[in-house]
Design a protein around this nucleic acid. Structure first.
Lengths: 250, 250
DNA sequence: GCCAAATATGAACGAGCATTCATTCAGATG
DNA sequence: CATCTGAATGAATGCTCGTTCATATTTGGC
């Protein structure tokens, strides 16, 4: 399963994996712009409700009410309730796939890129914390084929991290570890903020979690050369306020 | 939230958190031994079915059939379907709480204890892989109070790891890291084997996962002194066949 | 061997919910 | 203005379960 330059085309226009040929959730309605708007409404309501109450405890009635539309309307844009779940999950995974590259824009130094990527990952996860947990809860409720779409989206996101690791190794900053496995240490670290938030928040802020955790994981990864550069980077960062910021403001 | 010598009493007799005063799931049936046997049957069937199909897609009918009992009988041992879920989840968490200390029996060296604990954790997770995923999927479906029982059980399991870390730090083998946070790196690593098995199995066996992962995490943790001991331990281990074994056979 | 008491059974009940579809509505077309 | 088309509505339908309970079966004391 080779993934090229992970996810290049996609993020060009709007938010929409929904319309990817593969996903192809049929709608009764022809007007593409309308479909996108309506599905946006529906999915936003659904993510919120599913996250709070879970998929099965949420009725289509609930979704319709929160989205401010009728029950019938939902069925014009979606074949069944499972479709709503798929769209909801993909919208979450897609926000990862958009935010990480956005944070990396213009960052060149491999070590900084690695930091920024994981930092950004943790922050999207935080901004969609409940939804991240939803993904863990509900992906298995999808029929096999649909589930694979979600998995594929996850792999594409991981690829951003993996690429940073490969880059670091190539530059002699990281030890030549197994990239696939190491990627998961970082991915689980980011997801962990959502998964274990109920406990971790008792002793740790997001910033602290990121700094401490990244420092821990990088310690395992850095070569002596990498370690030297890392100390410089940290000095630069804490001089800049302690929070990594993309140098390309928007 | 202080946890003493985590979980001492419990494992004396059978498998049963079920009868802990806190859990106190009422049963119509008086005979305690019978209750234990029947609940065992029911829970075993439930864990299997819930893991496969999810909680909501599994009917009580299904559970009854698989357990080889009638629908009515289940309601003699449990108040409602949610009770079955709680019992199922606690039985999973309880297997962690039993297996880790069992593996640690008789192991004294702090560094080895740390390795053995995480190794054992990964292996229980593997032996109950689907059930571990179930815990992530379904804990939130429990009402708040019940959910807290599950969380408490998880914290108790984590305490085995945390204790190993504290011990290593005390002996100057580990850097003086934040124990609570570091514990989660290890916990997520163990759970990760179940959560991401769909992907990781494509490039990695359990043994490889454990060795590589533990090596990675320990690298981040060890002091120079610890690192020296670690190299010795690894040498000893690989001489012994490469697989850590509890020195107390049973 | 007989009779309570304790267990076990599963048909029947009824609530909850996804999905449908007959109907209404808004705006474009000519 | 009359007509047509595509969107939107939500009451009605029908099915799927969780739960109950009247009844059957087993157990163990005498």
């Amino acid at each position: 399963m080779r993934i090229g330059n992970a996810a290049e085309g996609l993020m060009a226009r709007g938010t929409d994996i929904t319309m990817t040929p593969e996903v192809a959730i049929k709608s009764q309605v022809a007007d593409a712009a309308l479909v996108q708007r309506r599905r946006g409404q529906i999915v936003a309501a659904a993510v919120e409700l599913f996250s709070e109450q879970g998929f099965y405890r949420t009725t289509i009635q609930d979704v319709a009410r929160k989205a401010g539309v009728s029950i019938g309307l939902i069925y014009q844009y979606v074949h069944d309730k499972d479709d709503v779940l798929l769209l909801a999950l993909l919208s979450v995974l897609d926000s990862y796939r958009r935010e990480i590259p956005r944070a990396l824009e213009g960052v060149i130094d491999p070590l900084t890129r690695c930091w920024v990527a994981v930092d950004a990952y943790c922050r999207v996860v935080d901004s969609r914390r409940e939804a991240t947990v939803l993904a863990y809860r509900s992906t298995k409720s999808l029929p096999k084929e649909r589930r694979e779409l979600v998995m594929k989206a996850e792999i594409e996101t991981n690829e951003f991290i993996a690429e940073c690791l490969r880059d670091g190794i190539r530059h002699g900053l990281f030890r030549p570890v197994n990239v696939d496995l190491t990627t998961y240490h970082f991915v689980l670290f980011a997801h962990g903020w959502a998964l274990k938030h109920w406990r971790i928040r008792e002793f740790c802020s997001l910033n602290h979690y990121i700094e401490d955790g990244l420092d821990f994981l990088l310690t395992a990864l850095l070569t002596p050369k990498g370690a030297r550069q890392y100390r410089q980077m940290r000095a630069r960062l804490s001089a800049g306020g302690g929070r990594v910021v993309s140098p390309v403001p928007r």
